[in-house]
Amino acid sequence: MPVANTDARSVASSDGAAETSGNIAFTPPSPPSQAALAFQDIIGGACAFRLWGMLGWQDIRLRYRRSTFGPFWLTMSMGGLVGGLGVLYAELFKVDVADYLPFIAAGFVLWGLLSDLISEGCTVFIDAEGIIKQVNLPLSVHVYHMAWRNFIIFAHNAIVFIAVAVLFSIQPGWAGLLFLPGLALLCLNGVWIGLLLGLVSARFRDVPQIVGSVMRIAFFLTPIIWKPELVPDRAYLLDLNPFFHFMELVRAPALGQTPGLVSWLAVLGITLGGWLVTLLMYRLYRWRIAYWI
């Protein structure tokens, strides 16, 4: 039985009163709560991996379409950067190239992922305006898409680190495997950062600018070019820098060291706190994103 009965409809007078079609023997169920909707959005987005998996690759393919080396341009430009700066700063800091080059290679490759996740997280919903205003997809799809694209880029850049590690025969040993949980935590954080910054930036367009400046400063305040050992009093310069802990968690194992307990605790704390704040904000404002963009 159809919901609406065409025969029972009537044209209303022009006073603008609202109309309902005739005899509807049907009351829709009450809508799910905002919390349930936010949760469904985040889980449903993850389940749409076929879509964002394809979109991530598509971005890379299109960017390098018709170029001979394709996405390996990423690898080559990262290689040039690391090689050039590595040799220069090893000279300036008067340290051994064999020790410094793997450090700066790991640092640059990882910082690329971290800073792109954060800065692209800001524009994740703004850039997806065309899709958001047409299709009722979970909004988190756009965040997974962005994170996946940056992960693919990271994988291409990581080749530079592997080459450097082989060249200087770095053997991370079993400690090296610790980079896996570190990287997984980093990606997990990338998702909440994208959801939260994307949401806030959709409403307040100054946020991407602020985040951009912060990331530029953070690059110099975080030990990427310089080694953490150079700081005599690590307490406040390093331990209060969240980026340091993320870097440490992945970089240290890759170089065959064990990351400090403080870094593990800091990153776990940031992950929990970040997701908590994100879920609260997402519950309240997810439905407004389509209005803001």
């Binding site: 044209v11 209303a12 022009s14 109309e19 079609s21």
Partner: peptide, 22 residues
């Protein structure tokens, strides 16, 4: 079936010919 919108309100709703006349 037709729906005639006017400044965000449904001004007419019904068989398409009548809505178009309106």
């Amino acid at each position: 079936t037709g729906v005639l919108l006017d400044a965000g309100r449904v001004r007419a709703f019904g068989p398409i010919s009548e809505v178009l006349r309106e």
